[in-house]
Nucleic acid binder design. Structure first.
Lengths: 355, 355
DNA sequence: TTGTAAGCGTTATCAT
DNA sequence: ATGATAACGCTTACAA
C-alpha cells in the first residue's frame, strides 16, 4: 500500500486524471465531477506530490532562507519577518544554515540550481569573488540581506551601520562619556568591516580618539568573553587578569590595538559580543553602566533579555527581513526588473546598560 | 538560455543520456566516456535537478526539522546536534517553524506527504489525538523529540523532566532553600504538564510544600516577565506592585495558585522564563541568589549568557537531537523496525543564580 | 466540460 | 560498456 497517485484517484472516481487535476486546481468542472473527485480524494487520503508538481510547473512554492549562525538572535528577528511575508504570499519558508565560511555559502548558492526552492534569501557574513559570482549566475532569484557589490547585480537590503554607530556615539557623548572603546567581530567579514569604519567615522565626527579597540574571532558570546580581557587590558581597566582565562580550548587570541587610557564606554559589533563583554566587566568588578556603559548592535531579543538590559543599535533586522522577502517575491514575479539596493535606517533602543 | 538538462549534456558530449547519468552516478564507464561527459558538464555548468531526480528515485535526501519557536534557544542546541548527524549521513537539513498551535503541527505532518523530505523530526509542544493520528499515518518516517503516546507507534526521544526537577530541588535543598516556588509554562502543553508533575513529586520527595506556583501563558521571556509579579505576590514577596505593570498590550493574566509564605528559590520550566523572572526579581529589589535562588531548565546558551549565569537543568537537548536524528536515519533505512522510545537522562549545570 | 496524450528531467531496465 | 526507452506523478495543450 503505497501512496495514492492521481491515477489511483481517477480510477476510483471513474474519471480521467486530467479531471482530477482540474478539480484539485479549482478549474471549471461540473458539480458532479467535483463531487466524485472529492469523494475519491478523501477516501484514499490523496495528497498531490509536490516534487512531481514542481517538476511540471517549474515552481516549488518554497523559499530558502540561509543564515550563518542559528545561535545569533538577530536572525530570529529577521526570520520571523521573512516568514510572515512569504507565508502570506503562499510560500513555504525553509531555513538552512551555512556556517561562517564563505565556501559553504557558495556551495549553498550553487546548490540552489538543483531546484530546491523558487528563491533564496541569504545573509552572508563573508563575501568574496566566488560568492558574488555564484549569486550572479544563480538559476533562481537571490536577494541578499547584507552588503554585496553592486556588480553582483542582485537585490540587496542592508543596514546602515555607520549611521548606527553614530547614533551610539551620539548617545554616549550626550551622557558624558568620552573614552569610548570598540569591540568588533572579525574584520574580514562584511559587517565587521562596516562597523570598524563606522566607529572610526563616528568618533571623528565628535573629535574623539578610540579608547581601545579589539577584534573578537567571531560574532558570538564566547568570542566576546574571550576578547574582553584583552580589551580591558588595552583600556587599562584590568591588569594581569586579562590573560588568566586563556585556557587550552579557547578561541584564538584576539587582535588588540591599544590606544591608551581607560574607557568609560564600549560599543560592541553585535549583541552577543556585548553580553559577553558585560560578563567580563562584572567579573572585573566593574559596574554597568556606572563604570562602563555598554552598547550592542542588532537590538535582538537578547538585548532585552540581558541584564542589565542592553542599549542597542536597532539595525532594522525585522524591516530588512520584511523588505528582502518582498524583493524576492517581486523578482520571482518578474526576473527582469532592475536590481534594487535598499538601505534601512537604524535607530537606537536605549536601555539600562547606558546611563 | 535556460538551465541545461541531462539531454543537453548528452548532446554536447555526443553520448546518450543514460551514459551521462551513469557517469554522474559513478557507475562503470570507460575512461574516455567519463572524460567526455565531465567536459560537457563543466562546460555547460550542468547541475542535476533534484526534483526530477527525487521523483524518479523516490528520495529527496532532505530531512525536515520542525520546531515550535525559533526564538527558543533550546532549539538551537538541538538543531546543531541534528545538523551534525544528518549532514554526516549525506542529508540536507531544512528547518521549518510551526508556531505554538497543534493545528499547525498537524498541517505540517500532513504536508510531509507531499514529499518535501525523506523524514521529519518534530518537537511538538502540544499534542492531541489529531497530531498522534497524523504522525501515525504519515507517509514519511517521523521521529518525535518529546513525549507522545506509545500508541502513536513512532520513535521518540524525550527528556526526563521529573528527574530533572528532582536534581534542581535536591540542589536547592542542599543549599538550604526550603521555600521553593515554581513558574511553569502553559500546563496544557506536554512539557508544561510533565514539569508540573515533576515539581510536585520532587517536593514531595523532600516533604516540602510548594511556596508558590504560577503558570506563564507561553514558554517565552515576555511571558516569564508577565507572570513574575503574580508569582511574587503569591509568594508574599511583592505587594501592590505586582499589578502595576499590567499594561494594555501585555499577555493575558497568568494562573496563580497561592500557597502562602515567601519563597527563597524559584524553579522555572525553561531558561527563557527563568531569565524573565530574574529581571522582575531585580526590579523588585531582590537579589539572585542571595534573596531568591533561580533555576532554569534546558541549559541552553541563554543560561550562560544570562546574568547572573543561570543554574539550569540540562535536559540533554543536544543528545536528544543527536539520538533523534540517528533514529530517523535508521528508520529511513528500515521502516519495519519496532519503534524505540529513548529517554535521555538530565544533569544539573550549576551556575551563579543559585548559592 | 471532459478525455487523451505529451512532456517536465531524471534513473533504471533492457537490448545491443 | 553503451544506447534506446519506459517509467516517476503531475499539469496542460489539444481533441472530442
Amino acid at each position: 500500500m503505497s501512496r495514492p497517485t492521481i491515477a489511483g484517484v481517477a480510477r476510483a472516481a471513474g474519471v480521467s486524471v486530467a479531471s482530477v487535476s482540474r478539480v484539485l486546481n479549482g478549474l471549471p468542472a461540473t458539480e458532479e465531477m467535483v463531487e466524485r473527485v472529492q469523494r475519491a480524494v478523501d477516501e484514499l487520503g490523496y495528497v498531490p506530490d509536490a516534487r512531481a508538481r514542481s517538476l511540471k510547473v517549474g515552481r516549488t512554492f518554497q523559499l530558502t532562507l540561509a543564515v550563518a549562525d542559528v545561535g545569533n538572535p538577530v536572525y530570529v528577528t529577521m526570520m520571523r519577518a521573512v516568514e510572515e511575508v512569504v507565508s502570506a504570499a503562499g510560500y513555504r519558508l525553509v531555513v538552512t544554515t551555512t556556517g561562517p565560511d564563505v565556501v559553504d555559502e557558495v556551495a549553498l548558492v550553487r546548490g540552489m540550481a538543483r531546484g530546491y526552492a523558487d528563491g533564496l534569501l541569504i545573509s552572508p557574513i563573508r563575501v568574496d569573488e566566488d560568492l558574488v559570482k555564484s549569486i550572479r549566475e544563480c538559476e533562481v532569484p537571490v536577494v541578499v540581506a547584507g552588503n554585496v557589490p553592486a556588480k553582483a547585480g542582485v537585490d540587496t537590503v542592508r543596514a546602515n551601520s555607520p549611521k548606527g554607530m553614530l547614533l551610539a556615539v551620539d548617545h554616549l557623548v550626550a551622557k558624558g562619556r568620552r573614552r569610548i572603546a570598540f569591540l568588533n567581530g572579525p574584520a574580514d567579514t562584511v559587517p565587521g568591516a562596516a562597523r570598524s569604519k563606522g566607529f572610526a567615522e563616528a568618533l571623528k565626527a565628535h573629535e574623539l580618539q578610540p579608547a581601545a579597540v579589539a577584534e573578537a574571532t567571531d560574532f558570538t558570546f564566547a568570542a566576546g568573553r574571550a576578547a574582553a580581557p584583552d580589551l580591558l587590558a588595552a583600556g587599562g581597566l584590568a591588569g594581569s587578569r586579562s590573560h588568566r582565562r586563556r585556557g587550552g580550548d579557547e578561541p584564538a587570541p584576539t587582535t588588540i590595538r591599544p590606544t591608551g587610557g581607560a574607557f568609560d564606554a564600549v560599543i560592541c559589533a553585535n549583541d552577543l559580543l556585548a553580553v559577553g563583554v558585560m560578563h567580563e566587566l562584572a567579573a572585573a568588578g566593574l559596574e554597568v553602566p556606572a563604570d562602563v556603559a555598554v552598547v550592542g548592535m542588532d537590538d535582538s531579543e537578547l538585548a532585552e533579555q540581558s541584564f542589565p538590559p542592553l542599549t542597542s543599535v536597532n539595525l532594522g533586522s525585522a524591516e530588512r527581513g520584511r523588505r528582502a522577502a518582498e524583493l524576492l517575491l517581486a523578482r520571482i514575479e518578474d526576473n527582469d526588473r532592475t536590481p534594487r539596493r535598499i538601505v534601512v535606517q537604524p535607530s537606537l533602543s536605549i536601555r539600562r546598560s547606558t546611563p
